[in-house]
Amino acid sequence: MAQPFPKRKLTDERFAIILLLPLIIALFALNLYPMAYSFWLSLTNTDVSRGISKFIGFINYYNLVFKDPYFWHSLRVSLQFTLEASLLAVALSLTFALILNESFKGRRIIRTIAILPWAFSTYAVASLARYLFARSYGLFSSLYVYLGLSDTPVEVVTSESAIHILALLFAWNYVPLGAFFLLAQLQIIPLDLYNQARIDGASAIRRLKVVTLPFLRRPIAIILLLFTVFSVVETTLIIGFTGGGPGKATQTLTYWAYAKTFMDYEYGYGAAISWFLILIAMALGVLYYYVLNKLKL
């Protein structure tokens, strides 16, 4: 007698889907839904302080680009910070990875210490920096006096220097991540290749160029992309260290999004700035890939 409901075979694919289902649901709930909601918010004039929320289409985006007096300045500062911070972080990551890949006494301890900055929360880095760079009691200001470079304590954080210091702090915080990522890759490069290069009389720089870098091309591209995205959206460091100042010297678009959202309660406008930032991150990512492929790094 035929069975009324034919038994379905649990294929490997179906089994995999069942296993992945909780993850897919979590991904949707934690990523896709908030993203979709924030995009919806960006199309409204939601302002909690005024208790209004109405669909206005792309008006927020139009106002941002054509009417907001701080937009172009913030965009320039954002791009400057992103380029400085991400390139510096990659360069230092590569340097540290190469150093940590060498055999020397105490390498294990140095490797452990090297990862410590990554263990600091960004806010802790910002708080620490405020003390290090403070004029009256900060380390750097005191060093100036101690080394005889100045008779009185100096202002290290000025309108001109603030953005560079932020980039440096960002790099300090994230370099361990990049360095260990590259170090893992360095350790799979066959030693024979280096030996062959040495036999051929290649100098250290030449060995770096013809042996090491070809293996690191993809990992460098990945961490560059990662650091770019991280730096584009970096807010905590800026809020915690400079608060967008002095004046508007470090007022990035993320800081402006934060100010509009959490200080002015304009959630709709803040969401529009955030989506603009996502576009910038994507554009920079594409640009980096293009340039790296072009340079055949």
Binding site: S49, G247, A249, E266
Partner: peptide
Amino acid sequence: YTKWNTIAQTELPLIFT
């Protein structure tokens, strides 16, 4: 007022810089 306050926080230091 809160929105103006944010603008003032950005603008006022500019007389010094």
